[in-house]
Computed example of a mutant assay.
Amino acid sequence: MKNNITLLLLLFTIMVTTCYGQTKPIGEEPLNLENFNFDTKISDLYPEKNKSKDYIGYYEIKGALRSQLVVKDTTFLNEYSENKKAIGIKYRQQSSTSIDTMAVFKNQKFQKINVATTIEGKIKVINAVSEELTGQQSRDLFKKLVTQYGKPKKLKNNWNEKFILYEWIKNNRIVRLVSAYNDESTTMKLVIQPKKQIISSGEKEPHYLVYLFVINPVLKDEVFGKMKTGDFVYLDEKTE
Rank of each mutant, 00 (worst) to 15 (best):
V175R: 04
Q22S: 15
G88C: 04
M15R: 07
E120S: 14
K195H: 06
T134P: 02
K106Y: 06
K153F: 09
V223G: 05
G121S: 09
K156A: 14
E132L: 01
L7Q: 11
S67Q: 04
I119S: 03
N160T: 02
T13D: 00
K24W: 09
F110K: 02
N158L: 12
P206G: 07
V233Y: 10
F224P: 03
L9Q: 11
N127E: 14
D39C: 00
K84N: 14
R92W: 00
F12H: 04
N158H: 10
V146L: 09
G27E: 05
V115L: 06
K196P: 00
L145H: 05
N216Q: 08
P217Q: 06
P217H: 07
V104C: 07
D140E: 13
N3C: 03
L165S: 10
T229V: 15
D100S: 07
Y58D: 06
S81T: 15
K195T: 12
T40G: 02
T134D: 00
T74N: 01
V223I: 15
E131T: 11
E240Y: 09
R173K: 14
L190P: 01
L9R: 11
T23H: 07
K84I: 05
S95W: 00
M1F: 10
W159M: 08
I99G: 02
Y59H: 11
K112I: 07
S200C: 09
I164M: 10
D236E: 12
F105A: 03
Q68W: 03
N37G: 08
K112W: 00
L11G: 01
K85P: 06
E132H: 05
Y234R: 13
H207A: 11
A128T: 00
P25A: 13
S67G: 07
I26W: 10
D221E: 15
V125K: 01
L77V: 01
V210T: 15
F38D: 02
G57H: 09
P25R: 08
E79P: 10
P152E: 09
V71L: 04
G121M: 03
K109F: 02
I14G: 04
C19V: 14
T13H: 01
D39Y: 03
N158E: 14
E237F: 14
K195P: 00
V104D: 06
G225P: 13
D100T: 07
A64T: 08
K122T: 07
T147W: 02
F213R: 08
E48G: 01
P194L: 02
K154Y: 10
T6R: 15
I123Y: 01
L133D: 03
T18C: 04
N4A: 14
Y166F: 15
F36W: 10
T147G: 06
Q94K: 12
E167G: 06
S138H: 03
N182F: 10
F36I: 04
A86W: 00
K84H: 14
E29H: 11
S52L: 09
K84W: 07
N182G: 01
I123G: 01
Y208I: 05
T117G: 05
L155C: 08
D221H: 11
G21R: 13
Y211R: 06
T147S: 08
T186H: 05
P30C: 06
T186Q: 12
K156N: 14
I89K: 15
K153L: 13
I89S: 12
R173H: 09
I89D: 11
